[in-house]
Design a protein around this nucleic acid. Sequence first.
RNA 1: UCCCUGGUAGCUCAAUCGGCAGAGCGGGUGGCUGUUAACCACUAGGUUGGCGGUUCAAGUCCGUCCCAGGGAGCCA
Length: 460
Amino acid sequence: MQRVRITNILHADTPMGEVTVMGWVRTKRESKDFAFVEINDGSCLHNLQIILDAGTSGWEDLAQLLTGTSVRINGSVVPSPGKGQRWEVKAHRLEIIGTAGPEYPLQKKRHTDEFLRTIAHLRPRTNKYGALFRIRAELSFAVHRYFHERGFYLVHAPILTGSDCEGAGEMFQVTTLPLDAVPMEGGVVRYDEDFFGRPASLTVSGQLAAENLACALGQVYTFGPTFRAENSNTPKHAAEFWMVEPEMAFATLADDMDLAEDLVRELVRYAMDCCREDLALFAQFVDPGLMATLETVATRPFVRLPYAEAMDILVRSGKSFQFPVGFGHDLQTEHERFLTEEYCQAPVIVYDYPKEIKAFYMRHNDDGRTVAAMDLLVPRIGELVGGSAREERLDVLAARMAELGMRQEDYWWYLDLRRFGTVPHAGFGMGFERFLMLVTGVSNIRDVIPFPRTPKHLEF
RNA sequence: UCCCUGGUAGCUCAAUCGGCAGAGCGGGUGGCUGUUAACCACUAGGUUGGCGGUUCAAGUCCGUCCCAGGGAGCCA
């Protein structure tokens, strides 16, 4: 008989009859003449309750059924006389597939997130992490669905890159040169002997590739891994994380903000619709205010504040901030949190930043001192999205690069976009893990990634 | 990288002023005819993160290193 997933049994309107189920034992309650065994197969949050009577085939193995054991059960789905579940399975036969000894580290009681990080290979078998990685998968699908339905084409941006996407952070270098005997000449590394014949890195952003494809396909997005070699030890940073980066030709900053707001809102709605059971766990055990937060994001318009106005608000707030406020200063964490958590109590999009604190490719505004950049700030997380209109005017872009001492020949193909049929275009990047933190209420990025990579941590 | 707080049984945590190192869960054994993180009884389980110091006496005080968490910076 073919295996039936537990979610299908539990969510059926009528008992499914004879089934074969396979899964891992979560808990067992024994009596003299019968036992209840709860098993989970990862298909949903809830366990399936198996009732096994004394004498049933497999009863003699009951002592071995410790938490973590994998089993196969043949039985019939029947209405459960007990409280707590609608259907249960009356076993005709129980078979152990793989035992788990008493040293199996996951027990029935609650574990701390810190402990579970040390057993990242097993933590998906807990309720919380199982739910989390199901939500992660569902929302990944939702990202693709969102863009597909709106005519955006997926771009597979390269992971290996020779371009230093200026300002986006420290990069991981990739090389096949022997590190214990790097070929040198006159104190300089002989990169001509390296695999690509020049320095290479892991990508920090798919943006440049997306811009190129947007200026051909109209509107595109990338959704892939990015890498930062920053020595950041915080709950919001990882060395490897996934970004969603849409890019639109013939678009302005206003279009960009509209898209960011709509994307975030639609993804949150998708989660509320399609991940209800798993989300309920987070609302109950992780963040009691979660559903209210999601409701706010899903229904209330995001506040839009020009940077200059945001700075005015901070100055007039009367709050004493650790870092200076006023035009020209960057928004620090304390400022972001004040704006989104206290002043607006909603997601906020801050836009038109001073050009000095933003990247070279952002479009210059007519005021001569700001660029068409925007950041979406959300409660608890801070910056969730960063984007801009891209400078499409060749002369303006070239002048800015010269100011910053950048070599045009390193960006010849990027500049070609402006030489041949240039168009206004705009896009943004959304940190996917940060979005997951928003949706689940989880407060550490290490807990929304199956195998997180952070400084000094490459286990698993 | 900087600041703060921690590290006690497999896990989650107690241990008052420096004075016998404990509980619950998990494991084992036995009991129990519908349980729901089942229940009842018994039981095994410890180099109190490492090293050094103060003291009659250190889980507790001091120094140092390691690890973890929180905050900050860098950044998404």
